[in-house]
């Protein structure tokens, strides 16, 4: 393979996504994200005036958007489902660490 054909990946800091990026990758508008942050349904990372988001936040955005879209759910209900799925993720990680299926 030609060395020039290799795309160099750059590892990013944990809280690396801007509101525009998390919105674009989650297929929502920045206003959708802004509204859910101000309503307390979605958190942000980092300090300072500019909001930053992590991959975990992006997963939450995608989940909430899917629940709202597929079931015409209220944002608060979608956030509740996302909370439960995050608890499920944590339990699964714990089981995996103990080598359990």
């Amino acid at each position: 393979m030609n060395e020039r054909d290799v795309v160099i990946g750059i590892g990013l800091e944990e809280a690396c996504l801007t509101i525009e990026q998390v919105a674009a990758c989650g297929a929502v508008d920045a206003a959708w994200v802004h509204e859910r942050v101000t309503e307390g349904l979605l958190t942000t990372a980092g300090s300072g005036t500019e909001w930053r988001f992590t991959a975990t936040h992006l997963t939450r955005v995608q989940r909430m958007r899917g629940i709202e879209r597929d079931f015409e759910a209220a944002p608060e209900l979608a956030a509740l489902v996302a909370d439960l799925l995050e608890q499920l993720d944590a339990a699964r990680r714990l089981l995996a660490l103990k080598g359990l299926p």
């Binding site: 795309v7 160099i8 750059i10 590892g11 990013l12 991959a55 975990t56």
Partner: peptide, 21 residues
Amino acid sequence: TLSVRIPRGVHEGQMIRLAGQ
């Protein structure tokens, strides 16, 4: 299909940026 050089030290959930892709 992209050939991507994965930076050493990546961890679960980390984002890797491929500029211009």
